[in-house]
């Protein structure tokens, strides 16, 4: 059976939605409360890593394959870059060109909200891609297991 025991799988099933929801909350309210795109992205990636550990690579790669992880990674970077460029068109590079309103509202901070979302996509997918590159696609793990068998 791929993945871990039944207990881990059940707990993961219960928790995973909450983890993703919390990651999205942290990202969206980054300009109001502690957190932001980076912290939210890390949580998103941790959710995917938990899925991989609990259910094995087949299931998590079905949700987010390495192709899509790398593509979303670059799209997040390009989005962040484009926010800077849009600001450039309205005066200065990285100008906050969207109208700002009173503090403590969700849409109160201009481009920061969009930037946080872009950073979240970038960080989440790239950390997951790094995890994939270091573990599943590396020959290292299989080598290590093989050498332990010889001992």
């Amino acid at each position: 059976m791929e993945g871990m025991t039944f207990i881990v799988k059940t707990i993961t099933k219960l928790l995973i939605g909450a983890i993703f929801l919390f990651a999205i909350y942290i990202t969206f309210y980054g300009h109001l409360t502690p957190g932001g795109g980076f912290a939210g992205g890390i949580m998103l990636a941790c959710g995917f890593i938990l899925l991989t550990l609990a259910f094995g690579k087949k299931m998590s790669l079905g949700k987010l394959s390495d192709f899509w992880a790398s593509l979303i990674d670059n799209l997040g970077a390009i989005t962040f870059w484009s926010i800077g460029m849009l600001g450039y068109l309205s005066g200065y590079f990285f100008m906050n060109f969207i109208e700002k309103s009173n503090p403590f509202g969700l849409f109160s901070s201009g481009t920061i909200l969009i930037s946080n979302i872009a950073i979240c996509l970038k960080v989440g997918s790239s950390i997951f891609a790094v995890f994939l590159a270091l573990t599943i696609f590396g020959r290292f793990i299989s080598d290590l297991i093989a050498s332990e068998d010889e001992d």
Binding site: F38, V130, A133, L134, G138, R139, F140, D143
Partner: peptide, 21 residues
Amino acid sequence: SIVIGLSTLALMVAISLRLYE
């Protein structure tokens, strides 16, 4: 600086795995 440290760490781990190989 944490983000930069994280990316350096990821690169270091990747290179050390390849070195082990």
